[in-house]
Design a protein around this nucleic acid. Structure first.
Lengths: 195, 195
DNA sequence: ATGAAACATGAATCACTATTCAGGTAATGG
DNA sequence: CCATTACCTGAATAGTGATTCATGTTTCAT
């Protein structure tokens, strides 16, 4: 952790204010257009205060990517735990992901932009995710819940599929309900396109 | 077309040099780290020459996104034309896409970064692509080649799937052959995960 | 061959904003 | 209530690199 942790109640609050402001500003303007001046203004602190807690503009950004990682995994494992077999998990997971993207569009944008701002954290985010996904698929395959010879490829394929739908239907928006999108996609995932 | 077209043979050549240099520099450094100074040095012209043909740094970038659009569609429709039914088209299309990403990684990166540098052209790229894809799916569904109730959703799902695999296996690299990746993913696309 | 239109140059400009820092104020343990 | 650490301020710094422009050079239609 490069970024310094506060040691008093006051400092904790200030740091959180900055982090929240950064999420809002990065999320709506993007990394390049976001300025420390605007972030600190939004947070209600002086510009110098920023550098008490974060060594650079990139550092807050990185911390937000990590935060998003935690939140996403938490949101998904929560809904997946409520469901008995892997195929159902695919459906509720996809639907939950789409809803999550819609309600955290700022953070989602930050993760995507991390690809260019901080590739390391971007990669970590997705590799961590994919590893867990792969394991679940392997177990499901052994149980006979699904047929899946190469779980790594399938994991990345399904993650990509979810990202594609998230970008188009959750971020860009549509009249179509996310539920319907998830249902349609799930039919293909489970049964395939073959007639 | 904001960008001025040259009127002599010499100008044509110069413009092409700049465009090629820009592809190389943006592709390897990213938009922010790329400098006009480096692009023009690479192109073998003075900095001012850049502004004879392009009104801004963003403008070349946009032109490269459009170029990538043409190349991708061309590469894919070529292989798809050689195949009789839609399911086979999905397979060869996916494999060709992965190979295309691998051999045009710079341009691919530019398209992805366009999401943040020039969202308009990013959107145009994918919407154009999706529209064509959707039409093909509709025709295939009518012919009975595939079952597909909501072609728009399926188109975006499959595009996302291809992007996910491309990023992981074509860009980041892997011992695994792209052919094997395509084959595995295709099994899921055509037959589904259900045992 | 010639002059107008195109093209090329590269140093100077100019706006921008991340980061620093010297000089304060608040919190807290003893 | 001190002394010390933690925190805060906001103006100044300082590096950057996109864009401009005044001045040449090349092309090419006539």
């Amino acid at each position: 952790m490069q970024s310094k942790q506060p040691k008093t109640r006051r400092g904790q609050h200030t740091r959180e204010q900055i982090l929240a402001a950064a999420e809002q500003v990065f999320g709506s303007q993007g990394f390049a257009a976001a300025s420390i001046a605007e972030i600190t203004r939004e947070a209600g602190v002086a510009q110098g205060t920023f550098y008490i807690y974060f060594p650079s503009k990139e550092a807050v950004f990185r911390e937000l990517v990590i935060e998003m990682g935690h939140k996403t995994r938490q949101a998904l494992s929560k809904v997946i735990a409520e469901v008995p077999d892997r195929l159902s998990a695919e459906y509720v997971g996809l639907r939950a992901f789409l809803e999550f993207v819609k309600s955290h569009s700022g953070l989602y944008r930050i993760v995507e932009e991390a690809q260019f701002v901080d590739p390391q954290s971007y990669r970590e985010y997705f590799v961590t995710f994919a590893d867990a996904y792969q394991k679940r698929l392997e177990q499901a395959a052994m149980r006979g819940d699904i047929k899946c010879e190469d779980p790594e490829v399938i994991a990345w394929a399904l993650m990509g599929l979810a990202k594609g739908l998230g970008e188009r239907f959750a971020l860009w928006g549509d009249e179509r309900s996310l539920d319907q999108v998830a249902t349609t996609a799930f039919k293909m995932i489970s049964g395939g396109l073959k007639p």
